[in-house]
């Protein structure tokens, strides 16, 4: 559904996106994760035909974006970062202007706009957009992205500047759209957002895609490259533990944190049992998405 081949963008000699190869399957919610300035927005603008790449190609539903950006715009929807509207018009009038580019009949257009305004909770509000709150503008932005009932939806930092309730509403809407079979390309630098709504994740740093795959897949992949942390707590003083796979230990009174090459919880359990000490807790500490993200970014020299 979304595919890029060596997609590159340079601004005055600075590479914003560096030979990006990406494939997002139909019907998935793809989280495009990266710190500010990593190249997320530039990638989205290239994928939506808003800016031309310096080199490389991108395809939406097999339509070459560079060759036919207008055709691509007919099948996509975009909620840009910092979306804005015409302050002197109300929500309906703004959407009606954008909808007029789709050759929709007036009645059909009105019907579609009304249903979208209802969906984002702005139906019947006659107030000019200039008086909207940031959250209302963002919701109207989502409505304008869905005007043409697009198969592929690009959301650039959709939850930024939203209050917690707004974030929840946005999440629900994304899930609803995903259930309808839409492909969603969701960019964010907020990790919890991505883990909440996305099936697959791509991590971008300094214009390069450093990781890409399913959430669990990425966790496993990165966990394989590091030691396993085991935390043990006993009822009395912690005995001394020795094992060939233990890399590092940190002892407290009745507690130890072990970094091991593998999951050696069974061996540790045996050792403590033999010392006739009661185990209160024995658990492995998993990497959070945040750990993976930070590791991906810093291992590639990102900020």
């Amino acid at each position: 559904m979304i595919r890029t081949e060596e997609l590159t963008k340079e601004y005055n000699g600075n590479i914003a996106v560096d030979r990006l190869d990406l494939e997002v399957k139909p019907g998935t919610v793809f989280g495009f994760l990266g710190p500010n300035g990593a190249g997320k927005t530039t990638t989205i603008l290239m994928l939506t035909g808003m800016i031309e790449p310096t080199s490389g190609r991108s395809f939406i539903n097999d339509v070459d974006v560079r060759e036919d950006p207008l055709e691509v715009k007919k099948i996509i929807g975009l909620l840009p970062e910092g979306v804005g509207f015409y302050d002197h018009l109300n929500g309906f009038q703004n959407l009606d202007y954008f909808a007029s580019f789709y050759n929709m009949e007036k009645e059909k257009r009105k019907e579609r706009i009304d249903s979208l305004l209802l969906m984002v909770g702005l139906y019947g509000i006659e107030q000019k957009v200039g008086g909207y709150s940031r959250g209302m503008t963002q919701r109207l932005g989502l409505a304008q992205a869905l005007l043409n009932d697009p198969a592929v939806i690009f959301l650039d930092e959709p939850t930024s500047n939203l209050d917690p309730q707004g974030v929840l509403q946005m999440r629900e809407t994304i899930k609803k759209l995903s259930d309808e079979g839409k492909t969603i390309f969701f960019s964010s630098h907020v990790l919890s957002e991505v883990s909440q709504v996305c099936d697959t994740v791509g991590i971008i740093s300094e214009g390069r895609l450093v990781e890409c795959g399913g959430l669990e897949e990425i966790k496993k992949k990165l966990n394989a490259e590091k030691t396993v942390r085991i935390i043990v707590e006993t009822s009395t003083k912690m005995p001394n533990l020795e094992h060939k796979d233990i890399v590092k230990t940190e002892y407290f009174e009745n507690r130890v944190i072990i970094d091991a090459k593998y999951d050696i919880r069974e061996a540790i359990s045996k050792m403590i049992y033999e010392e006739e000490v009661l185990i209160l807790e024995l658990r492995i500490e998993e990497s959070s998405l945040e750990d993976i993200f930070m590791k991906s970014i810093y291992d590639t020299g990102g900020d």
Binding site: T48, M50, L70, K73, K74, I76, G77, L78, P80, G82, V83, G84, F85, Y86, D87, F98, F101, Y102, G141, Q144, A145, L147, N148
Partner: peptide, 16 residues
Amino acid sequence: EKDRGSLKSLLSHPVY
């Protein structure tokens, strides 16, 4: 349009 951010919204629709 640049100040308001409406230019991006406008150009994301099928218009050259």
